[in-house]
Design a protein around this nucleic acid. Structure first.
Lengths: 297, 297
DNA sequence: TAAAAATACTCCATAGGTATTTTAT
DNA sequence: ATAAAATACCTATGGAGTATTTTTA
């Protein structure tokens, strides 16, 4: 790697490029003119490129100088941003990070991620709120939340989406239902059963995927109830209103009246993804996502 | 504005953050361990933020350190990019070259030159614009364009002018005009004909030359129309408004109502020249002119 | 107690200052 | 003739080196 210029060189050069006058630039920088001339010469020598064409009457940028000026400004902005970002975090003023999560993510990686992030960034306030996938995506776009944990989101040009884990789907039936007696079940066994489902607006991806599984098994499910929440879905199954297809982690809810069966299909899997607005220089989001990646390996 | 860290600080910090060990980081940086410790301390003092938590057994990043590391990498990348971009421009390998050309040059060497230049300097953006000779010369002087392809320019102390090709002039008459019946024509045959000409401001050299040819033939042309564009000149001839003397390449425009006749005079020739400002250290212009010489040489 | 960072000091490279010269208009 | 950049030379800050001490697992 070749030698790099120092920030000082870029500041000096940018100032001369703005003033197009070494004397005034030196005054603005609070140094004398000769050392400024020297630093610019040193910079040009370092780059091996002439940046300024100067006579005793006028100073002007070479084409290389124009390019280097634009790039230098970017660097200077980035440095200032770096300093401020570090100071904000150091003072714990980096604001709060508003994290939303689909209800079912509660039982998976989320608790570990939260604990680990709180450990490492004790001064960052995490504002956690449960929210279905659909509203989360809207909230991300409107700026109401910073990071969302969603199920099966559709790609979106405004959002960065990274899959953090996969989870199998399960068939859920009431324990006194005849199907509960069978050791293994396929989706096709549900073809004449009443279905309890999530409404499409709340979890569009999951909804579509369950419909897809049924159609792949050759039938259209007879939906008797669209619950508002995951908990409700399970309790409706327990109450015997119908069967459902749900993410495996709901087993951990511990409802005793429900039996779960694996679905022998590679497609019977939901992904959970983290999503955030495409924005640069969001150090807190970067930091959070680093923790996420470590936790989910 | 607070004091900024230097690139050196960021490099040192990033290396320590990667190694999480001052001794190894110092070795990688080619300096001793104590000055590295000092520079990191100085950086932390400058920021007013602790970046690394260190004991004699282990070094680890603070949250502010994590953020500053990510930002520092962005800065370091930006600096390297700035250096390389400036060097590329300095070597004439990238940048923008604003090239203007008289409309008639379109049909001659220009397409080949452009293609060949784009091949060899793919990172250079060519900003091409059609412009009559007069405005081109003004644009060159004002710095609005870098290179111009002009017809018969007058010499100019501020401009470097190199002839790139010669092209004969043709007499153009309407096909139903009595003169069209003759196999050969001289300029003198046009002496009582209405003339269509370029205005002097747009193509001073060509204008003067056509007048010169007429005067050499012993008459002053009766100019009925000064067209704004070359295309217009031809269409006016086609419309039967008058005769004209035009560069041979307009034949390629394919107007069927016009007949062209060679002019048997060594002076009935226009030159097309490339012109640019007399300036030193214009690698892009040099590179472009090398390609031009190869193509027309 | 051993490995590693911090301190103490020394040195010199170089950023920056002052005085002067060169250059182009 | 003059304004402005370059050069010459000097000073001193601070970056880097060596030797040593401190710290904690």
């Amino acid at each position: 790697m070749a030698e790099l210029p120092e920030i000082r060189h870029l500041r000096y050069f940018a100032t001369v490029a703005e003033e197009l006058h070494f004397g005034r630039a030196a005054a603005r920088l609070g140094i004398a003119q000769p050392p400024l001339s020297q630093q610019i010469q040193r910079l040009e020598q370092l780059l091996g490129v002439r940046l300024l064409e100067r006579t005793s009457r006028r100073v002007q940028l070479t084409p290389a100088g124009e390019v280097f000026l634009a790039e230098s400004r970017r660097v200077l902005d980035a440095v200032e941003g770096a300093v401020e970002a570090a100071q904000r975090v150091g003072r714990g003023e980096s604001g709060t990070l508003r994290v939303a999560f689909a209800a079912t993510v509660m039982f998976l990686a989320l608790p570990g991620i939260i604990r680990s992030f709180r450990d490492r960034f004790p001064r960052v306030h995490l504002d956690l709120r449960e929210m279905p996938t659909g509203p989360q995506l809207a909230g991300l776009k409107s700026g109401e939340i910073d990071i969302g944990f969603v199920r099966e989101p559709r790609p979106d040009p405004d959002l960065e989406i990274v899959t953090v884990m996969r989870e199998p789907l399960r068939i859920a039936v009431n324990r006194s239902h005849p199907l509960a007696a069978k050791a293994t079940l396929g989706v096709r066994d549900l073809q004449h059963e009443p279905f309890v489902l999530f409404p499409a607006e709340l979890a569009p991806g999951l909804h579509a995927q369950v419909l897809g599984l049924c159609r792949a098994a050759g039938f259209e499910p007879h939906v008797v109830e669209e619950s508002r929440e995951l908990y409700t879905s399970v309790s409706l199954v327990e109450a015997g209103l119908g069967v459902s297809i749900l993410p495996a982690s709901v087993e951990k809810l511990g409802w005793t009246g429900v039996r779960y069966r694996a679905i022998p299909s590679a497609r019977a899997e939901t992904t959970i993804a983290a999503a955030w607005r495409r924005e640069k220089a969001r150090p807190l989001i970067d930091a959070f996502m680093r923790v996420v990646r470590e936790e989910v390996g």
